[in-house]
Amino acid sequence: MMLAELRAYDRFKVLAIHTGRETGRRLADMGFTKDSEGRVMRCGFLRGPMHVCVGGYHLLLRHSEAAAVEVEVLEFAPHGHGLGRGGRRGLRRGFGHGALSGKPGLCHGCETDAAAACQDSDAIRTEPSAT
């Protein structure tokens, strides 16, 4: 699956970058390397840029660039939240998960330290230790 197909809060692991030259090199330099893990934080209006967190860094990239990054999905963020809009195009994509669900542990990353959450998949499953 390509990174461009993911939606907000999905977690992924990078498998390969299928482009060379400047774009490929930039992606690699910024931390999109094999086996690095990350999370989609949000997508811009009308398929504008994506905001992803990979290897602990927050990056912006266009969908056209994300289409060259092959990923393995580690976890689809739960969608719908029983609002009836259903499916992966639910309302919550626009307003952010916290606003509608408020259930900790369902969509990691928004309740947790975003950097830690996308860098270390174990960290987010740990119970809050000292907050």
Binding site: R42, C43, G44, F45, G96, T112, A116, P128
Partner: peptide, 19 residues
């Protein structure tokens, strides 16, 4: 592993909101 709400992400939820 620290489970703290980051200020940055909370601000971004508003400032980078698609609408």
């Amino acid at each position: 592993p620290l489970l703290v709400q980051t200020v940055t992400e909370n601000i971004d939820k508003v400032l980078m909101n698609r609408f």
